[in-house]
Amino acid sequence: MAGNVEQPLDLILLALDEEILVKLRGDRELRGKLQAFDQHMNLVLSDVEETALKVEVDNETGEELIKSVKRKMPMLFVRGDGVILVAPPLRTA
């Protein structure tokens, strides 16, 4: 299957119709099934879960707490300029 991988984007082609992990600018990650992509790394994902990391400052102690906020979206277009990396998902969750 991996015999004809010559270019980086060939790997993305193999990920079509598969679950992927996408790391984005602004401390965001997406997991979802890849439905489409182009050379700019614009993507369409289905059954997406977004995990956004947000820093909250505790009013009393002034401590910075890092909170992860999750949300689900059934069908999502992602603009390519925000994409940092695309990978097979980690099998931890």
């Binding site: 082609l13 079509l16 119709d17 984005l24 439905q35 489409a36 992509f37 182009d38 369409v44 289905s46 979206m73 059934p74 069908m75 999502l76 277009f77 992602v78 603009r79 925000g82």
Partner: peptide
């Protein structure tokens, strides 16, 4: 634009994957 959410019912996934290929 960062994201565009669309309704899944408006998307034909099979056709979209084929078009991407």
């Amino acid at each position: 634009i960062r994201y565009i959410q669309v309704y899944a019912i408006d998307v034909d996934c099979e056709m979209l994957q084929e078009a991407a290929r």
